[in-house]
Amino acid sequence: MQFTKKDILDMDSLTADEINLILDTAEHMKEVSQRPIKKVPTLRGKTVVLFFYEPSTRTRVSFDIAAKRLSADCHSISAGTSSIVKGETLVDTAKNLEAMNPDVIIIRHPSAGAPHMLAKKLKASVINAGDGMHAHPTQSLLDLMTVRERKGRIKGQRVAIIGDISHSRVARSNCIGFTKMGASVVLAGPPTMIPMAVETLGVSVTHNIDEAIYGADVIMVLRIQKERQKGFLFSTEREYSRVYGLTNERLKNAREDALIMHPGPINRGVEISSEVADGPYSIILEQVTNGVAVRMALLLLVAGGARNVDAD
């Protein structure tokens, strides 16, 4: 199968076959990262620009390492150090970047839809590294890879996602990604954190964490951001942790082989207790390892893929 997508914008726009191809490719890429000399020449002469309008450590370093392991030249720009602070618009900044002929632009942006806007304007491939509350497709793909690796398949798995679904691009992308691959997804969290009409993404909703955990093969916990107290989404971290926090006590209701995932960074003692985060079923760090593999796979696939000759 040939991968023909110019851009990786969200999980909606990828087919199940394309997702499988990405995951298969990522498995090969993972092997590269395990060699003593962790570098292949595949993307030598290609230019990758990391364009981060939002603070990020994990995702940015992950993309940076992925590009370098494929021998691409990788340049990183962040909002604080670029002409964005001088008032240049996103489109102008991107067009200026494009004038330097990069092959792939990886963008993280606080505004939902920003990568879509760039993808329409630019000939370079655009990979969405997280846009507002909308999508985080590379995170979803690495989560799919990790589950497939551990469980052998994604189809038929019951995935519980717990936390602030409303503000989570990871949750949105995983709702779409996991259901597309045949898993069932149940969301749990306080009603204040469940977006309206989220069932239309093909998932079910409960406000009781024990109900979500019961029978789940995968339990994915989302970070709780303290600043959401301002929007009255929850009372205190104390109460959140008591009612919705994942603890060993709660895990007694889960399947014995349930996997614990978290997109990071974790708040120990709030949405997840240390004993669970560090416990035998936690695969949080494997997610990070697979993140590099998935991003290598995507760079490889798009940098060899079709070009948008119609972009204006």
Binding site: G113, D131, V198
Partner: peptide, 21 residues
Amino acid sequence: AANGVMNEGEVATRLGLAGIP
């Protein structure tokens, strides 16, 4: 209305845009 930018509902949820009920 808070920081909403489009109608609250299915489309806003899918697009990840803050809703205005």
